[in-house]
Amino acid sequence: MGEKIKSFFAGLWQNIRTFFKKRVWQGFCVNVLYKKFDRYKAWIYLLPAIVLLMIFTVWPIFNTVRMSLLEGYTSMKAVRGVEFELGIGNFTRVLKYKGFINCLKNTVLLTVLTVPISTFLALLIAVCLNSIKWFSRALQTIFFLPYVTNSIAIGMVFAAMFNMILGGGVRPDFVGVVNIVIEAFGGDYINWMNAGSEYWANIVVMTVYIVWNALPFKILILLGGLQSVNKQYYEAAKVDATPRWRVFTRITIPLLSPMLAYVIITGFIGGFKEYSSIVGVFGESMGPAGNHYALDTMVGFIYRAIGNQEGTASAAALILFAIILVVTMINLYVSKKKTHY
């Protein structure tokens, strides 16, 4: 009896196995599992990216707008259950606040100083690099070096170069290498960044550092653009005996204009987000001793408001975004009129 049942089940099992081994099982796999998976697999691949973006990118966009529109919003109060009124008070308060105006001034000043200077210098260097025969590679490498640096760390080097220590006497106890060079050319020491230094001197230090830092990227892009210009244009110009300068203004610049537009736009965007280079040179006080936050920027303002005044921070961040957007739009508009593709 037991044997019979055993063999019966064994036979049944065998049947089931062959049944599933054949088409049905395959059909199930192909038609149900595979097709279902096939339809949604793109979303499965995108899942981690989308989840993270939802939390750390999409939600912040909405939340920032929300916080900026709640009068005097802070997370501390929110935790305590305080109700906030809807309004644009955060924006008006930020725009009236002297500290913020100072930030805005510094940011705009540094941007309009550094972008033209660095773009012009980069263009000059790129054109020179493109027209020399030997050492081109080596020089390119040197000019790219500042890119692979830590802007805080090298900021500290610049600080050491501009630094001086004021003793009690007429002459400072110690002066940095920049002032030594100035003295060698017959000038007077300048207090670049220490206590009692003037605003313009601080700005000069930051301009030098930011330009130094911004050059490599611009040179790389512009040189790439120059090298991709079809050599035949230059040969055609040579046949027509076009003078060098005309070749530069009539052929090189127009053909390079998309890259120029690109470095100028990214330069403006980067300029409005200036922060860490100033921290690198001046430290977190963002100004010379005794005059803290003299060189504060918009990003610095936002960071200091994080964690205690979210409403203000959000309003400032949205203002920053608006400025960047407007400046980019203007840039795009101008470049559309001026660039030749």
């Binding site: 990118t57 912040p60 994080i306 961040a317």
Partner: peptide, 24 residues
């Protein structure tokens, strides 16, 4: 559409996200 939306977020300065991300 999704890809265009992703690219659009690149326009926004990162500081704007930092405020909320800090709370999050």
């Amino acid at each position: 559409l999704l890809f265009a939306a992703l690219l659009a977020t690149m326009m926004i300065p990162g500081e704007l996200f930092t405020i909320t991300n800090f709370q999050t």
